[in-house]
């Protein structure tokens, strides 16, 4: 993980500030940094999104491929997550340096989606036991400035919203053989229902309080954080303590409560924004890719 050096005096400054609900960049304890979301950014994907949160930048591409369903669940498709920590983000990620962080992040994503309502996996089935859609969700970290989990989950939600899966027809001949036929019309596609896709909220325990969307400096002052994945109706699909320290049970309960409140409030504006961008479609003026 990208790290910054924070001196003792700076730590005390940050800690005292947070105690008085005032953070170094002027935010309150439950405020996010400025966030930018752009969908449909990479043409070769079936759905893509770019999210910048402060100086954290994440690019997500979704590719749909036809695969064989898992034997235990023949009538559902599945998702595959892969997080790539590019060496652009920090030199530490060069070679295999980012691998560990990448697997950690993707393992959390599998956990977040390991329930029946996050995504309707039945809709990804083509023919039970034989073919299904496999959605490869590839996350690329372009820049790290803390709070990767939140940025990634928002980018995934946006990318899945943007995903267009081509419609297929199954024709069977007289001998019972089946053939998959792809629709000729490029606009004839299926959309994924992302209403229940959760967003992750990371809460960093700093001193006696906890903050949402911590920067790297603030993260350096905290011993442990709690990540909570919350859907739009407040269901928690994953929670996890990360970091080297331990937490008091009472503060875990407080943090869960805050996480739920903040996470719930995140969904409505996000969906509104995504729909607004969708309606612009061709009229949207594109200036540069990353700026």
């Amino acid at each position: 993980m990208a790290t910054v050096q924070v001196s003792e005096a700076e730590k005390v400054y940050i800690l005292h500030g947070i105690r008085d609900d005032l953070r170094v960049d002027g935010r309150g304890c439950e405020d996010y940094r400025h966030m930018e979301i752009e969908t449909d950014v990479v043409s070769n994907t079936d759905g893509s999104a770019k999210v910048t949160l402060g100086h954290t930048a994440v690019l997500v591409g979704v590719k749909a491929e036809i695969g064989k369903p898992r034997p235990m669940i023949p009538n559902e498709g599945y998702l595959e997550f892969f997080v790539d920590c590019s060496a652009n983000a920090t030199p530490e990620f060069e070679g295999r340096g980012g691998e560990e962080l990448g697997t950690n992040l993707s393992n959390v994503l599998y956990k977040v989606f390991s329930n029946k309502h996050s995504l309707d996996l039945h809709s990804l089935s083509i023919s039970p036991g034989e073919h299904c859609w496999v959605l490869y969700v590839d996350v690329l970290l372009l820049q790290c400035d803390g709070n990767l989990y939140d940025a990634i989950s928002i980018a995934i939600k946006a990318a899945l919203f943007n995903t267009k899966i081509p419609r297929v027809n199954i024709t069977s001949d007289d001998e019972g053989g089946k053939e998959i036929e792809l629709s000729d019309d490029p606009y004839d596609c299926m959309r994924v229902n992302v209403e229940n896709v959760p967003c992750i909220v990371t809460l960093c325990k700093v001193g006696h309080r906890h903050v949402v969307d911590a920067t790297l400096q603030e993260k350096a002052c905290s011993v442990a954080s709690l990540i909570i994945a919350v859907t739009h109706n407040g269901t928690i699909t994953c929670s996890r303590k990360v970091g080297g320290g331990s937490l008091d049970p009472e503060s875990i309960f407080e943090m869960t409560e805050t996480g739920k409140r903040v996470g719930k409030a995140l969904h409505a504006p996000l969906m509104k924004l995504l729909q607004q961008e969708e309606s612009l479609s061709k009229k949207r003026v594109r200036v540069g890719f990353l700026c």
Partner: peptide, 29 residues
């Protein structure tokens, strides 16, 4: 950590409401 009364590890998956999660943590303790 029983004598310090601290939680050093927490992981949940599946679907839970805030109340069941909180109650679950207490039960696990």
């Amino acid at each position: 950590l029983p004598s310090l009364n601290q939680i050093s590890g927490l992981q949940s998956d599946g679907e839970m409401s805030e109340e069941t999660l909180t109650a679950g943590v207490r039960t696990c303790i």
